[in-house]
Design a protein around this nucleic acid. Structure first.
Lengths: 220, 220
DNA sequence: GATAGTTTCATACAACTGTTTGAAATGCAA
DNA sequence: TTGCATTTCAAACAGTTGTATGAAACTATC
């Protein structure tokens, strides 16, 4: 069993630096200095800089995706294969928002790294994101089962808008805070989740007769 | 009057190349080759590479912002200082969506450039985007006048979500097309605008008694 | 048509990048 | 200890990048 000390030191240092300063101006030399290892160690352990970035991103990505599917599966099993749309949407956007938002000073470097990844979007990360379609398809399927009267087009648009609101809020959280002069409380993660879920639910259920009791739409 | 031939040739070539291949792998040498001008011409006419990118982006940006404000002003004047929220939202997201979406083969390189700018987000562009807050404040003001019963927080969240849906749809239009197997027609720009406006309107009006006749919420 | 100002050009510069190399160090099994 | 494989290290490599320079070409004014 190799100690892996060097390897994990590189990962930790890279994540921290990328989180703080972005991908644009962090070089391998910065990383190895922060990790106190030799420059060649990166290529020895990871093959290339891009593969290092990719490993950071996939590790964190599959954690989020696993959490999403866990929540989705639990909801569908409880409902006999059919979950309420709010719960599905919450499973979709909740893990991501919880992972990236919250009080700034207690955000893990992993969270800050993911925010960077969603803002800057470098090639190795883009490549990985493109493979996420299968994952989203599972949610589209669950949404279709939950809203059998809705057309596929409406489902996809609803999914698109739900992700839009979640990701944009993460990406532009600073700007929203500045624009609202601090009135929008982005530290209240569950409040944000509720807002996103509420609007996405409206987008998906408006204009058709509701099959269940009117769900609480207003957030907060 | 200097002919400006070189200057505009550089701008056109840069816009085309950035639109096609992204900021990441287009060098000044690529640009001057495409423009058939000398390498030093870029620094002579623009000062630096970043200033060239900035000029491309601001030119296009102020055009969009001007169009937005034109629509907003027209609507508010017609309504005596108070415009319907749908019209305000349409003025906010319409120009951007119209500028970036539509049949792929007839997208101008300016439009494709702006899509790139929203996906890749390089430093000079980020700097400019940060100055856009004043512009958004004008829309927040109009929205507040349109919905005086709404809290500021709700207004800002509605604004945030409207921009979220528009920008995300532009950024991820390819993925949405792939995910929906072409069922979501992104070439129908006005249809997309209607959807975004409709959902954003719901987000802003739900949960309170509506002051006017129930607006048509469902898109298409 | 000489002059002053602007624009173009070829070329060099300086710095930084990720990656490779081959030798030294280390860990571990026999 | 000996031998073998893994890991670390300093150093160099090869390529690319944006930028600067100074001379040449051009343009317009007098």
């Amino acid at each position: 069993m190799p100690s892996d000390h060097t390897r994990s030191a590189i990962l930790a240092a890279a994540e921290r630096l990328y989180a703080d300063r972005g991908f644009g101006d962090v070089t391998l030399r910065d990383i190895v200095a922060e990790a106190n290892v030799n420059l060649a160690a990166v290529n020895y352990h990871f093959g290339s800089k891009d593969e290092l970035i990719a490993e950071l991103f996939v590790t964190r990505s599959i954690a989020t995706n696993r959490e999403r599917l866990r929540e989705l599966k639990a909801a569908e099993e409880q409902g006999g294969g059919r979950a309420p749309i709010e719960v599905i949407l919450r499973a979709l956007v909740g893990p991501t928002l919880r992972g990236c938002l919250g009080p700034e000073n207690q955000r893990s470097s992993a969270a800050r790294f993911m925010i960077r990844a969603s803002i800057e979007s470098v090639p190795p990360i883009r490549r990985i994101k493109n493979r996420e379609i299968d994952h989203l398809r599972k949610f589209a399927g669950a949404m279709r089962r939950s809203l059998p009267d809705r057309s596929d087009v409406d489902i996809y648009w609803g999914l698109n808008f739900a992700l839009a609101m979640a990701h944009h809020t993460i990406r532009e959280s600073e700007r929203l805070t500045k624009l609202s002069e601090g009135k929008c409380d982005l530290d209240d993660v569950e409040g944000v989740v509720a807002r996103v879920v509420s609007v996405a639910t409206m987008a998906l259920t408006a204009g058709k007769t509701e099959t269940k009791a009117p769900s609480r739409l207003a957030a907060r």
